[in-house]
Design a binder for these strands. Structure first.
Lengths: 145, 145
DNA sequence: TTTTAAATGCGAATTATTTGCAAATAATTT
DNA sequence: AAATTATTTGCAAATAATTCGCATTTAAAA
């Protein structure tokens, strides 16, 4: 259980109890290495935890910065482990294909924005996603015209 | 109806019929000048158009780049007129306050990303939003500890 | 004016997320 | 190691968000 201990600590440090469901959910995100929806997490859980538990867990881990919420334009939230190297996504609006985008260079921009903001005390996260059409979907679109 | 004619043209140019509902919806966004949810659009419509119509309209106008979808982390989509000067948002996770962010400097970044992408043919839009806590909510949070 | 493809309205279906509450349990204290 | 306590869970039901099928209407083209 050496591996698990890191997650236990992470949870404790964030002010949560290290329960089996939470450890399992973290484990799923570690394996997946791509944005997962609540439903995908539920399906991936071996002895399915209740959906309410999954939703609650995702929301609170997102709040604590353990997970990061991603908007893939699918009408439901996706999440990813936040401590993976900082990256963003390029998402095909037609088929959903995802490509990783590194180096957004937003760290300084974010600091500048906060400094020049009238009302804000803190920036906790930012979303930067690019929506487009992948090459194979672009071909298909051409055919259909 | 001079004003309306611009919208009629816009719709036609995008391949749509210029129907009363669509013109009304465009009008609402022009007045609002802030991100609106489908429900807010429905409520703002004088002789309420059907919700299915509103959802369909928002989705297709977003697809054509007339509207831009914004994720405020409210569990439902928001939209804004896309042709307002390019800007982004700073959103309070606690109370929902929104501040406008100008100059994201993403245009070049976006071009660079597309060039170095293996699979993508086109980038149609990008989302860049900052989530944080506004000063007054930060104060409240302090009190509750 | 007729035609026709596109758009609408309606109701119902589906999907996504949250809630209230009683029971279970992780961490803490004894 | 047992007792305590504040969290967390599971369940079922509620609510919210979005989509669908289909008959009818309508904007634009012919």
């Amino acid at each position: 259980m050496t591996k698990n201990d890191a997650d236990r600590q992470l949870l404790r440090k964030s002010g949560y109890k290290a329960t089996p469901s939470r450890l399992a959910i973290l484990g799923i995100f570690k394996k997946a290495r791509k944005p997962l929806s609540a439903q995908e997490v539920i399906d991936a859980l071996p002895r399915s935890a209740d959906q309410a538990t999954v939703y609650r867990t995702l929301k609170s881990l997102n709040g604590k910065g353990v997970l990061k919420q991603i908007d893939l334009r699918h009408n439901h939230a996706h999440y990813e482990l936040a401590d993976l190297a900082e990256h963003h996504h390029l998402i095909c609006l037609a088929c959903g294909k995802i490509e990783i985008v590194h180096h957004c260079g937003m760290e300084e921009t974010q600091a500048r924005i906060l400094r020049s903001s009238k009302h804000f005390a803190e920036i906790r996260q930012h979303a930067l996603e690019f929506y487009g059409v992948c090459k194979s979907c672009a071909l298909k679109e051409k055919k259909n015209n």
